[in-house]
Write a protein that binds this DNA or RNA. Structure first.
Length: 203
DNA sequence: CAATAGATCATCT
DNA sequence: GATGATCTATTGC
């Protein structure tokens, strides 16, 4: 490599943290566009391969469906922040807030393809057999990345959790299906995933 | 393979 | 007092 040429210039583009404007769109647009992006926390990071959109209106499955409460406050707040909540008394789920302040709408991150910090992830998820199982579910990926309710409300354009567009983006097809594990508004096609990717939580 | 039960608790009714 | 945007182990085909 020639002197004076940065690695970024040599490879064409650097990894770049997604700006606030990325999140100021509908939850569906943000959910689709988050596929292929990378979530980083500390030494661990993973590529998003599965998401679900939760809407501000006409979506009974969304936590925001009954208006703002103490728990759902961040969903109504500034886009580009993390909404982390406890599910089934045991696991935590990571969401990214979409849409402008005042408008509810968020995206559940359902599965990651591990990118860095694999050894740390394995330590945090000793029951996982292969690397596919480290983060192929919403409760698993928060464990693997060390994300907890402490991170509820953090700004993912600033850290300690960051979401970026990787320097090298591979092409992929987007699959669409019903969301997983809900009983209300269950038939809406709001789950998006990288077609054929082995780290998706189900086919 | 599929189906099911148990773990465990903050939030909301 | 009931309800989950889940995961794992176990049981049954």
């Amino acid at each position: 490599m020639a002197a004076g040429i940065s690695p970024e210039a040599a490879f064409g583009r650097a990894s770049q943290v997604l700006p606030r404007s990325f999140y100021v769109r509908t939850a569906v647009e943000v959910a689709r566009d988050l596929l292929g992006k990378v979530v980083t926390h500390g030494a661990t990071s993973g590529r998003i391969v599965e998401t679900e959109a939760y809407l501000g209106i006409d979506d009974a499955a969304a936590h925001s469906a009954r208006g703002m409460t103490e728990r759902t406050r961040v969903i109504f707040g500034e886009p580009g922040h993390a909404y982390v909540y406890l599910i089934y008394g045991m696991y935590e789920c990571l969401n990214l807030v979409a849409e402008p302040p005042g408008s509810a709408g968020c995206v559940l991150i359902r599965a990651l393809e591990p990118v860095s910090g694999l050894a740390v992830m394995r330590r945090r998820r000793p029951v996982a057999r292969g690397i596919e199982a480290l983060a192929n579910g919403p409760g698993k990926l928060t464990l693997a990345l060390g994300i907890t309710r402490r991170h509820n409300g953090v700004d993912v354009t600033r850290g300690p959790i960051l979401v970026s567009r990787p320097a090298h983006v591979e092409e992929f097809e987007i699959g669409v299906s019903k969301r997983v594990g809900i009983s209300k508004s269950a038939d809406l096609p709001l789950r998006f995933f990288v077609k054929g990717n082995r780290f998706v939580s189900r086919g």
